[in-house]
Every structure is written in C-alpha cells, then in structure tokens.
C-alpha cells in the first residue's frame, strides 16, 4: 500500500467540491442528467472492480434493480429517510451478492457474464408478475427526508444532488483505496494467472467473492440513487438485460484505468443519449451503437486513455528536450 491521499483521491475531492459549487448553477434538467450519471457511475465502478479481475457481468442490473426496488418496498412500510434507504438498498443488494457469490465465484469468462444475466432475467420475470409492485408498470417513489430534514419543493432536488454526490464520492474513494490494497491488487494477478495466485497461497475465489459483494453493494447504491432521481421504478428500466448492457457500455467508454473516469464515462453516455435522442429521434440507437463502435475501435482503453496518451506525449516531448521523464 502506498499513499492513501494520492492524485486520484485529490482529483475526486476536487470533483466533489466542484459539484457542490456547480449545484447552484445547474438547471434542473442538467442536475437530473448529473444525478443519473452519478447513479450509473456507481454501478460502473462496481463493474470496474470486477473487470480488474477479468470478469464482466452482463447482469448487474440485478443488483441495481434490487437496490431500486428496496427503496420502493421500504417506502411501503414507511421508511422514508435517505440514509436508511441507502443502507437498506446497499445491504439487500450486498446480501444478494453474498449469496450468489458462493456460486458465481467458481465461474469465469463468458459463463460468469451469462450466469449473471440469467439471474437478472429471473428477477425481471418475478417483478413482472408482482402486482403489489405494479408489475411492469412499476411503482412510484415518494420524496424522501434527509436525516429527518424535509426540504421545500424548490430545494428538494438540489439537496438530493448533494447527497448523491457525497454517496458517489464515498463509493469512489472507497473503491479506489480497495483497489490499491493488497487484496485489490492481487485480483489483477487473478486475471493474469489464477493458478499462480493460488500457489502464492491466496484464495482466488475468496478474493473474487469479496469483489462481487463490493460490486453488488455499489450497484445497489446506484439503484437507490436512480430510484430517488426518477421517482419511479419499473422492471424494464431497472432490471432488463439491456440495462446491464448500458452499464458495460459505460465501463468501456470510461476505461478501467481510474474510478473517477467512470463518472465522466457515465456523463458522456448520458449526454450522448440525450442529444442523440433530441436530434435523431428515429435513429438514436444507431448513433449510440456507432459511438460505442468508434470507442472500441479507436479508444481501446476508453476515455481515460486520452489522458494517458497525452501524458505519454508530454513525457516523450520532455525526453526529447533532454529532461528525464518523471517516473511514477
């Protein structure tokens, strides 16, 4: 373990402060896009955590939807404070991940991806049948209180935004530190060669299990934020396999280099979708798919690679001008 307070940490912290300030300037529709980016960003961090092990889930909407529906169910029994809803959503999603993890930790590659998808589709089937939760029409989410404080109508969403930013910040910093820890780094070794990791005396499966739970909790958190942002949960927007596809899309868009980049990826995705939808309402899928293809082809490591590219060039330029490149 190196420094806890590294560049990424400070970058995230600056982002946190900047978003607080920005909150006063944003128009409501932009704040809404911001909230959704934070939500999907949280899920994408969860995917990034898995991705570092070489695992990709095509079914993380399972935990996302679990978090979101937990909010709906807790509200039915009268729980209405954001912190309780968040804890509830993360806990149920995490618990589900813990249980499924015993099974899923044995799987790799495409089997892992597809088994996740199968489970998410089973949840979809269940939700589409439960009339008490509105079946496919879904169920509304009420406005919540914040540690007992109930803001006025006008300040509700700015308050929600501040809380979502804080949650996302905690998720991002926590995940970053985890990935830098020995346990976190070891799973990268699992990706390269699992058998050797076992020879070193670590349990690859256990490491994967921990990651899986963490990513489940993060996806649950994303679900909670999304449910509160939208004010409505329904199986098609929360659990269907295409929703999981969107998360993987964001992860690829952002690249797996840095947790902070995930939020940028989520924001870019959100803006792309909004504008494609506005300017080409009949072929927005084509634009979305086309952009994804371009990124895969030309930015193999996602948006984050623009930064490294730029840095490499600078280092190269520095080397040419005679200075030794700064080692990291």
């Amino acid at each position: 373990m190196t420094r806890l307070f590294d560049k990424t940490f400070w970058g995230l912290t600056i982002g946190l402060v900047a978003l607080f300030a920005l909150n006063f300037l944003l128009e409501e529709w932009m704040r809404s896009i911001g909230l959704q980016s934070l939500s999907r960003g949280c899920v994408a961090i969860g995917l990034l955590v898995l991705w570092r092990t070489g695992l990709v889930s095509f079914g993380h909407a399972l935990f996302f939807g679990f978090g979101a529906y937990t909010v709906a169910m807790l509200q039915i029994i009268g729980v209405n404070d954001i912190i309780l809803l968040l804890i509830g959503g993360c806990a149920t999603a995490g618990l589900l991940a813990l249980v499924l993890g015993f099974l899923l930790r044995q799987y790799r590659a495409i089997f892992f991806a597809l088994l996740n998808m199968a489970f998410s589709m089973i949840l979809y089937g269940v939700l589409a049948k439960v009339e008490a939760l509105g079946s496919t029409d879904g169920i509304g989410i009420n406005q919540v209180s914040f540690f007992g404080f109930v803001p006025s109508d006008d300040s509700y969403r700015p308050t929600l935004f501040i809380f979502a930013v804080i949650f996302a910040y905690i998720a991002a910093v926590g995940s970053h530190w985890y990935l830098k820890s020995t346990l976190g780094l070891m799973t990268m070794a699992v990706r390269e060669n699992e058998i050797r990791v076992e020879y070193l005396g670590y349990s690859a499966e256990k490491a994967i299990h921990i990651k899986y739970v963490l990513s489940g909790v993060l996806a649950g958190m994303g679900g909670v934020i999304m449910a509160l942002t939208i004010g409505h949960v329904d199986p098609d927007s929360m659990v269907y396999w295409t929703v999981s596809g969107d998360f993987v899309f964001i992860t690829i868009l952002a690249g797996t280099g840095n947790v902070g980049a995930t939020f940028i990826g989520a924001l870019v995705y959100e803006l792309l979708r909004t504008y494609a939808f506005e300017f080409a309402p009949e072929i927005w899928q084509l634009i979305l798919g086309g952009s994804l293809l371009l990124i895969i082809m030309f930015l193999p490591d996602g948006l984050w690679s623009i930064r490294s590219e730029w840095r490499n060039r600078r280092a190269l330029a520095a080397a040419k001008s005679g200075d030794a490149p700064a080692g990291e």
Partner: peptide, 14 residues
C-alpha cells in the same frame, strides 16, 4: 422505458 421517459420529460419541459 420509464427512466428514459422521465429524463425526456424533464428535458422537454426544462
């Protein structure tokens, strides 16, 4: 789906 439509409604109105 619902989520996208809520976003769209905000965009259209705001």
């Amino acid at each position: 789906g619902g989520t996208k439509q809520v976003t769209e409604l905000r965009n259209k109105v705001q």
